[in-house]
Each structure stands twice: as C-alpha cells, then as structure tokens.
C-alpha cells in the first residue's frame, strides 16, 4: 500500500531519516522512538509537508510525480495542531471537506464522533487544546484517505471522544481498508490493542520491533 524508497531527510548536517526501503500494507502500525528520533519528521515527509530525497508511493501513485493524487490518499493529524485563529470549525470542515471530497454524511458522522457540534461556529482562537486535537483528528478522517497518519492521537482528548475515535478507526479499517500509522508515547494497550506491527526509529532507520504491541 505505502512504499517508501530511499527516503533520506537531513537537517543541516544531521541525518534524521535514512530509510532504504519499506512497505506498509493495510493495517495499523505503531511508530515508536525516543524524543527527537524523527517520528514527526517521518510523518511530515510521507505526507508531503517536508521535503526529502527519495520517493513514496501509495498504490503505485508517486508523491514526486503526482503530488495531488498522492496527497488525496494520505492525511495527517499533527501532535500539536494549529489552525488560522479566525476560522470557525464550520469553515475548516467545509474547506477540507471540499478539498478531500467528503460527503455531507461523512461530515455529520465525524461531527458526532468527536462531539464537535457545539463548536461549529466558534473561531479557533476560543478553542481549548482538546478541541484543537479533536478537530485535527476529524479533518484527518475526511474524504477517502488510504492511509491516516496520527501523531500522538491519544493525548489531550477526553475519554468519550477517545473511545469514539477508536471505534471510528476500527470502522474505517474494516469498511474502507484504511491503514493507520500511529506514533504515541502513551501506554495505549488498553485503548488500541490491534497493531499489526510495531516499528521503531533507530539511528534514522525504521526497524520492526514486534508483530504486536507489548
């Protein structure tokens, strides 16, 4: 599904990522690593936000050759999301929904899952950090992405939303075959048990650690 070839990312003289070849099939994968190991950079690279040497392909669509088609197939919810302060959630959902071709039904489903209804007309500047996180998660599910990257998704949000989010992710996996790449420091075994594999970023490379999160 996602094929990474010769991905190399450097900051100044420091090599943060150097992944010769890696393939992620359908499923859910945990990306572990110590602070500063490059998890967020990895997500930014494979989602087309940060530049890098090499290429990524999703179902044969190359990021370098067909950036728009590629980006439609992958989405990212950042660990500390930021949005323009004067937009409302309504603006954001409509804008991203149109870009990612999400139907009204899906928008309604996401609003319900993340309990967003009461914030629809509130500008971003009035939101709490939990609200920002829920909005970022909802936006990541919009459209029909084949891969959803979630950077620290279990922090900040409240328990009911967390439960709904996990149910939603399970539904997307089951119904649409969506793959999930998740980085987390939280001991999330009680919330998310079924990783297909756990990877760790060690010395700038992705190394498989186990077939099931311990």
């Amino acid at each position: 599904m996602l094929e990474i070839t010769r991905l190399r990312k450097t900051y100044s003289e420091r090599t943060v990522l150097d992944i010769p070849h890696m393939v992620f099939e359908k499923g859910a994968y945990a990306i572990k690593g110590s602070n500063g190991s490059g998890k967020t950079t990895f997500f930014k690279c494979i989602c087309g936000i940060a530049g890098f040497e090499g290429d990524c392909l999703i179902e044969g669509v190359s990021m370098k050759k067909e950036p728009v088609a590629y980006r439609r197939l992958i989405s990212l919810a950042e660990a500390e999301p930021q949005f323009p302060r004067f937009l409302t959630l309504n603006d954001l959902l409509r804008f991203v929904g149109k870009a990612r071709r999400a139907g009204d039904l899906q928008i309604e489903e996401l609003k319900e899952a993340f309990d967003l209804e009461s914030f629809m007309t509130q500008p971003v500047r009035t939101w709490s950090s939990g609200m920002l996180k829920k909005a970022a998660l909802a936006l990541a599910f919009m459209g029909n992405p084949k891969i959803i990257c979630l950077d620290e998704p279990f922090t900040t949000i409240d328990r009911p939303s967390l439960r709904n989010f996990i149910e939603l992710a399970a539904k997307y996996r089951r119904q649409y075959g969506t793959a999930f790449l998740i980085s987390s420091h939280v001991k999330d075994a009680h919330t998310w048990r079924d990783y297909d594999a756990v990877y760790e970023i060690v010395n700038a490379n992705l190394v498989i650690r186990s077939g099931q999160d311990e």
Partner: peptide, 8 residues
C-alpha cells in the same frame, strides 16, 4: 498548513 489542502 490546512490551506495547503487547496491543492486537492
């Protein structure tokens, strides 16, 4: 960053 979605 969300405005980059306009590319889609």
């Amino acid at each position: 960053r969300v405005i980059r979605e306009a590319a889609l």
